[in-house]
């Protein structure tokens, strides 16, 4: 085993994207997002009477009680908080070589972070366009969602390249995706 392989550096890479130094900041951001969205969700569930809004007057109240926020059976900020929680869990599960030992969790992580970011951007657009209002904490959580995308994607790239090598080695992609040992013995 080479030094790179011991450190879990993917072939042709200069660093390992699955180290804790790489992943913990993303998990931390997800937890901050969960707390902020959870607070907004408590307001939407009427468990706290007022929502903190330092800049835009009645804006947060308007956005958080808008018809868009009630499209689904659960208030949208509560869904957001659940989304951030799953981000944090998917970011934390697995060891530092999980890009090859557990591609499934890396791919799920990437798929969670990507769409959650997209939805955040969409919600930011809808605030002024539909309701002529801004919501400070909503903007803050959207910023967190967007800032998580870049650092999460390098791990996703390493896993996708691993799956490509498994495919080229004529190994079952299914088994590679779930991290079967027989695949790990044959594909670097």
């Amino acid at each position: 085993m080479t030094k790179e392989q011991e450190q879990g550096i993917p072939p042709g890479w200069t660093y390992n994207p699955a180290t804790w130094g790489q992943r913990l900041p993303i998990v931390g951001l997800a937890i901050v997002g969960m707390i902020a969205a959870g607070y907004l969700g408590l307001f939407q569930l009427k468990l706290v009477p007022e929502v903190w809004e330092p800049f835009f007057g009645n804006g947060s109240r308007k956005i958080l009680t808008s018809s868009t926020s009630k499209i689904l059976p659960i208030p949208d900020a509560v869904l957001g908080a659940i989304g951030y929680l799953t981000d944090a869990v998917a970011g934390a599960v697995g060891g530092t070589k999980r890009w090859r030992t557990m591609p499934w969790i890396v791919v799920i992580f990437g798929l969670l972070v990507g769409p959650l970011g997209m939805i955040s951007i969409l919600l930011v657009v809808l605030q002024p366009v539909l309701y002529d209002a801004w919501c400070t904490i909503c903007l803050f959580t959207a910023f967190i969602s967007v800032i998580m995308i870049g650092p999460a994607m390098d791990e996703m790239l390493a896993s996708m390249q691993f799956l490509k090598r498994a495919k080229d080695a004529k190994v079952s992609l299914w088994k590679a995706f779930w991290g079967y040992k027989e695949v790990l013995d044959r594909v670097n």
């Binding site: 993917p10 072939p11 042709g12 660093y15 790239l157 390249q161 490509k164 090598r165 080229d168 670097n188």
Partner: peptide, 21 residues
Amino acid sequence: GKFGGGWSAIWKEETPHAQEA
């Protein structure tokens, strides 16, 4: 950083990550 050939290396052949592996 180097990224094994980047995003296109997911579908292309003879990429840096495949050669290094």
